[in-house]
Design a protein around this nucleic acid. Structure first.
Lengths: 194, 194
DNA sequence: ACTGGGATTGACACTATGTCAAGTCAACAT
DNA sequence: ATGTTGACTTGACATAGTGTCAATCCCAGT
């Protein structure tokens, strides 16, 4: 509980996150984390009993710092479905680039590591709930495109907002982030709204 | 050049592919491949000098067997842009599940292995060209939604058709493959066509 | 009967994770 | 001042996987 303890722990988390952002998907090594902090590899294991645990702790740490929750203040001001949709894309669109490294790192282990996959899914289900809420609002306003059931609409919305989708458009197709936000808003409106 | 040589080689490729389909993204081990074929681990290295080379060779092997080219016979019959779009989604939608394991395996190494990434990108750029062709056709027919430049339309189309998109809708959201094809067709028409 | 190529066996180097034991060092207690 | 506690170090080890090497085996074609 000493400040030293939590200091080192925080330094490790900070370094891990930084390495994730730098390496963008390439697996980070425990030794590299230790070197970055300036401690021995074994010291890392004093704070996190495995690589998996470190990854998950890093995810939680980033959540704490960059958490979506506060961001949703913008969102909460919106009342109509359309406004909410716009706010959601805006908030999420600005959020992704800040957590892209972390997201890639967690997604990379998805198929081999149940636990980190779960940590990531947890984040994504928050987004999904938001999508669902917006779809519900649109439905109540009678604006939901009748081609989809509310469930389908939610799933389409959610899928369109995925990190992979963002990655392909910005990284592969070299869209700017603003372009992503603008075009995604137009696309979603076209698809979901009557 | 003896039939034995190419026999074993083919068996290795076959086994690798099979393991990829079974493991869905989990990295496959050289030892497992060897075991599956019934040869020693070292024998695999007589045919493929590294794991990377084996992965790429497997990709080419699958291409040979399941190649998109022949599938596009359906596509070639279509003349109008809308028909082509429909045919494209149909062909691609049936193709993905057959190569999903391979795709996951190659995508999984994307960030750590330049060479396998290139092999996969190669495949994806074929699809991209097709998307572009369809967008051009639509444009010539005056049907392309004026919200997008032809380039943007191509990139949106291409991104919507990505494996990750398919994966999220079918694996995460439990859509049937037919549902994917049907809904994707509707979505793309809504988005791309005036 | 000989040779060459596919395959085997077993050893090795290397890298990364994770565990263990022994010891250092500083802060804080009595 | 002494002793204890807790964070950290050092160095060794087990394990698992990739990739290399050398020696050997065995069979098919000349």
């Amino acid at each position: 509980m000493s400040s030293q303890h939590s200091d080192t722990r925080t330094q490790i988390l900070q370094a891990t996150w930084q390495l994730m952002e730098q390496h963008l998907g390439q697996p980070i090594k425990m030794g590299d984390v230790a070197k970055a902090v300036g401690i021995s590899r074994q010291a890392v294991y004093l704070h996190f009993k495995s690589r998996t645990e470190l990854m998950i702790a890093t995810s939680n740490y980033v959540d704490e710092i960059k958490g979506l929750n506060e961001r949703l203040n913008i969102y909460k001001k919106a009342t109509t479905g359309v406004e909410r949709l716009e706010a959601c894309v805006e908030v999420w669109g600005h959020y992704i680039p800040e957590i892209y490294g972390l997201a890639k790192a967690l997604l990379a282990t998805r198929d081999t590591d149940e636990a980190t996959a779960a940590a990531w899914n947890n984040n994504m289900h928050c987004l999904r709930d938001l999508c669902q809420e917006i779809v519900e609002t649109l439905k109540q306003e009678g604006l939901l495109n009748s081609a989809w059931s509310p469930e389908e609409a939610t799933e389409i919305f959610w899928t369109m907002m995925s990190i992979h989708h963002w990655e392909q458009l910005t990284v592969e197709c070299a869209w700017s982030n603003q372009q992503y936000i603008d075009k995604m808003t137009v696309m979603l409106k076209k698809m979901l709204i009557k």
